[in-house]
Simulated scan of single mutants.
Amino acid sequence: MIRLHGHSMISIGDFLVIDPHDGGSIGLPRPVMRRAEYVFMTHDHYDHNAFQIIESKEKRTGFTGTFSSSGYSIQGIRVNHDRNGGKSRGKTSIYTVKIGNLSFVHMGDIGEYPRESLIKDLAADILALPVGGVITIDGKEASQLVKEISPSVVIPMHYWVKGHLMPLDPPDEFLNLTGLQVYLENEIDENNLKKGIYLYKP
């Protein structure tokens, strides 16, 4: 089961948590998940690196390369967190996780539209990507990326909701431009995918 925990935090069963947040520092509910085998953070910013809330046997930040364990395979690719070659906000990672025959891609805080060669490598059944702009790609860019990659399931991340303390854009533009079915659900059964957008429900 894939679970959404708000902002950019997503878990895959009890195996992996990506980009944990602590809730309070960004104005969202504190995640209830407490344990996972691994915690992978796309980059070392406070809204993505609250590893202390998760009990795990290993934590990695900004991972690149390939890692395999418990039947899962994770590939990490470094990209820019801004449009200035990483000079403003540094780097972030994209994580591709193989779940059986499915491919799950977490785009981290990608801050510029990815090059064509990278897009061709991002074959994703489930795509999680930032849509809130300001410090990442925006809703328009994210909707174009969804069209190019054409996943079955889309998970918007890193956008403003009521109570959020970060000055991000809400997901409205992204949702309107994609025009896909929206499910207000925090759990995705990878064995029974419903095509569309899964929007985190606080």
Rank of each mutant, 00 (worst) to 15 (best):
L177R: 14
N186G: 06
S117K: 13
V79E: 00
K195P: 08
M157R: 02
S68W: 03
H7F: 10
G13H: 01
A142S: 15
Y72F: 13
G71W: 05
I18D: 03
K195F: 06
I18N: 01
S117Y: 13
N80L: 08
S69N: 14
E185T: 13
I99K: 04
I99P: 02
L165W: 04
G76M: 06
R3C: 11
S93I: 07
K87Y: 07
G108T: 04
S103M: 10
Y200F: 10
G23S: 07
T96K: 13
P29N: 06
G132M: 03
V17A: 01
P171G: 06
L199Q: 08
S73T: 15
Q181S: 14
W160D: 08
E173V: 11
V97H: 00
I74G: 04
F15Q: 06
R3I: 08
R35N: 14
V32M: 11
H158Q: 12
D125A: 05
G163F: 02
S117L: 11
M1V: 14
G23I: 03
V134A: 08
R89K: 15
V97R: 02
K140L: 12
R34T: 15
P151M: 03
T64S: 15
P202R: 13
Y113E: 09
N101R: 14
G163P: 00
N192R: 13
R83F: 10
N191W: 07
R89D: 11
V105W: 01
H158F: 08
M33R: 06
D22E: 10
H106E: 02
I119W: 06
K120R: 15
S103P: 05
D109M: 06
G65C: 13
T96F: 04
R34E: 15
P170R: 09
M9K: 03
A142T: 11
G76D: 09
R60L: 12
R30L: 05
M166C: 06
M157S: 09
S73Q: 15
R30M: 11
H7S: 07
K194G: 05
L122H: 10
G90A: 02
E141H: 03
Y198H: 07
E116N: 14
L175Q: 12
K91D: 11
E148V: 08
D189S: 12
K194D: 08
V161W: 02
S103W: 04
S152D: 15
S8I: 03
T66G: 08
Q75R: 15
P171L: 00
P114S: 09
I26H: 01
I54W: 00
Q181Y: 09
H5E: 07
Q52L: 12
R60T: 10
L102T: 12
E55Y: 11
L102V: 11
S103Y: 10
A36S: 10
G23H: 01
H21W: 02
F67V: 06
Y95R: 02
H45T: 15
M9F: 03
N80I: 05
E190N: 08
S56N: 12
L175S: 12
G62A: 07
T136H: 07
G65N: 12
D14G: 09
I188R: 00
N80V: 09
Y113N: 09
E116T: 14
N191A: 12
I155H: 00
N49K: 11
T178E: 01
Y95T: 06
M9L: 01
G90Y: 01
D14W: 01
I77L: 03
H158R: 08
R35Y: 14
L165E: 10
L199E: 09
M9N: 04
M107E: 01
V105E: 02
D44E: 14
I149M: 04
I12M: 00
H21I: 00
K162E: 14
F51E: 10
